[in-house]
């Protein structure tokens, strides 16, 4: 049984770096594979990725199928599809998981259609029923409902949202096998990637974490401290309108009725009172954390966690504590 592949994980990489969602998929995949009493495999495509393949093992994979070739350096969806389909045909996994990143959500349906199998989008939870079939749980109707979905065909494919599943701890002593496979070479795919342009700047409406400040901030310079916090959390800065109007920060950071509507996983509001026009822009955040001196501020009653106190007393210890957790300081 154990040499049958229970779960296959697509190890998305960009510029040779494995995407964080892959480790999370390996974490969940490990659990599912163990319950199925089968192995957990990963598939990695790209160029010069031997070390990355090993990482996948440290994070839980039993077997990594590696196709290492210059033609796979960039993400050409048609090339990727052909190579992935080939591995899937060989491995025959019960379950095939792909990160619900933009790359994953563009690639997975192509692969599913090629395999003529079902695909569930953007899952936030996965489980098994008594027969070992995958139960896929996903939001639909713009997040207003949750649906449970099962797939009658194999592999049961799902894309899974980032920052939902828990990765295992990295364990360099884990053993596993790296299986190298030859690429399918295609001369032309109809796709040429002419250029890749890094996206700089804020995209507040897509941010997972927003560290926002309001008039509780005393000077424009103080945005620097908040920015440090935002960066540590992989997030971006947000602001209430008065600070934008005062020119302390650009309008692209404004949250609210006359600014951006945001929906991050975590919204931290420092010194924001929570006027209706501000709430309009952030009320759909998953978790709202408010830091405010005033226990009567309206933001308190819409928050999941709140701190009654001076933001200036909390911000530094908070940054410190995060650095500790990230191993940046002792």
């Amino acid at each position: 049984m154990l040499n049958e592949c229970g779960v296959l994980v697509f190890a998305e990489q960009e510029n040779g770096r494995i995407h964080g969602v892959v480790y999370e998929l390996l974490g969940k995949g490990r659990e599912l594979a163990d319950r199925l009493k089968k192995s957990l495999c990963a598939i990695l495509l790209g160029y010069n990725l031997w070390d990355e393949a090993k990482e996948l093992i440290y994070y839980g994979a039993d077997k990594v199928y590696l196709i290492d070739h210059p033609s796979l350096k960039d993400f050409d969806i048609v090339r990727y599809k052909h190579n992935i389909v080939k591995i899937v045909d060989e491995v025959k996994p019960d379950i095939f998981l792909i990160g619900a990143t933009r790359i994953g959500r563009s690639l997975a349906p192509r692969v599913a259609a090629a395999l003529k199998t079902g695909l569930t989008a953007d899952c936030v939870d996965l489980d098994l029923d008594e027969e070992g079939n995958l139960i896929q749980i996903r939001p639909a109707f713009s997040g207003n409902i949750m649906a449970q979905i099962k797939t009658r065909t194999k592999p049961q494919m799902a894309t899974v949202r980032y920052r939902i599943m828990k990765p295992l701890n990295r364990d360099p002593s884990r053993r596993g096998e790296i299986v190298v496979r030859e690429p399918i070479l295609l001369e032309k795919t109809g796709i040429e990637i002419l250029d890749k342009i890094e996206i700089g700047g804020v995209n507040i409406s897509e941010a997972d974490v927003i560290v926002a400040a309001g008039r509780g901030l005393k000077s424009p310079e103080d945005f620097k401290i908040l920015e440090e916090l935002a960066t540590l959390l992989g997030g971006v800065l947000g602001s209430s309108r008065p600070l934008v109007d005062a020119g302390w920060i650009g309008r692209e950071h404004q949250v609210g009725f006359s600014g951006n509507v945001v929906k991050p996983k975590v919204y931290m509001a420092f010194g924001i009172s929570g006027a209706p026009q501000h709430l309009f822009g952030m009320r759909d955040s998953d978790i709202i954390i408010a830091i405010n001196k005033d226990p009567s501020a309206p933001i308190i009653s819409v928050s999941d966690y709140y701190v009654i106190g001076d933001l200036y007393e909390i911000i530094h210890p908070l940054i410190n504590e995060i650095k500790k957790v990230k191993g940046l300081v002792k």
């Binding site: 008039r215 009172s273 006027a275 001196k293 005033d294 226990p295 009567s296």
Partner: peptide, 13 residues
């Protein structure tokens, strides 16, 4: 207590 605010900085808006 909580609903009586006397500090100026908390009532600016």
């Amino acid at each position: 207590d909580k609903w009586v605010i006397v500090q100026r900085e908390l009532m600016e808006s």
